[in-house]
């Protein structure tokens, strides 16, 4: 149970378009980053966020008030992105491939390029397999550099819950990535990168 009272600025008021605009602008970048880490495609990532806001916009005159708006938006972007991923797996794989090639062209060492590409692919896959709340909290910690206390406040959770979810996230990631990471560390060691 959580009895915390929600801060007022996190509440959408039906028909108040100016508040809707503020909410959109306040959350856009972090939601875009979230969708991007799932999809690795900036055009589609923006599309996912736009879709989530569009659905909220359509509902804005009925109720559409959520006790923790931030948690609602993250959950929606996660679901929207995962659904997209599910329905476009074949196309997606192709895109990941071509985009990764572009990104690492600048790297000098081709062996490092290859390993990085593999590693990124594995981490993204493992992250996308995490449960939603766990994933969202990891996202806020890793990509928004928020402290446990700040995440707890924004999500309307206790610090203890955030601590558990972060523990769970890294534990699950290690479970999924252990084999790959070990060979990676051996590789880095032999190439004297670390």
């Amino acid at each position: 149970m959580n009895l915390n009272v929600e801060p007022l600025q996190e509440i959408l008021i039906p028909g108040e378009d100016i508040i809707f605009e503020q909410v959109f602008k306040a959350h856009f970048k972090s939601l875009f980053a979230y969708a991007f880490t799932i999809l690795k495609d900036d055009v589609m990532a923006e599309e996912m966020v736009q879709n989530v806001f569009y659905k909220l916009w359509e509902k804005r005159d009925h109720t559409a008030i959520h006790a923790s708006l931030k948690a609602y938006l993250y959950r929606s972007v996660h679901n929207e992105s995962m659904n997209y991923l599910k329905h476009s797996r074949v196309i997606k794989n192709h895109q990941i491939h071509t985009m990764q090639q572009q990104k690492y062209e600048a790297d000098i060492n081709p062996a490092v390029q290859l390993v990085n590409k593999e590693l990124e692919h594995h981490i993204r896959k493992a992250l996308n397999e995490l449960p939603e709340q766990c994933r969202t909290i990891f996202q806020m910690s890793r990509f928004e550099d928020l402290k446990y206390r700040e995440i707890a406040e924004k999500m309307g959770l206790s610090v203890k819950t955030v601590e558990n979810q972060m523990g769970k996230a890294l534990h699950l990631l290690r479970g999924k990535l252990a084999g790959f990471i070990i060979s990676l560390l051996v590789f880095f060691f032999t190439h004297k990168i670390v």
Binding site: F143, L170, I182
Partner: peptide, 26 residues
């Protein structure tokens, strides 16, 4: 291993950020 995962996961972040004003126009 945990530390490696934590550090390396950073590279998933978008390289280019989209401006929220532009996004709002769209």
């Amino acid at each position: 291993q945990l530390k490696t995962i934590w550090q390396q996961s950073r590279m998933l972040a978008p390289a280019v950020m989209i401006d929220e004003e532009d996004a709002w126009q769209r």
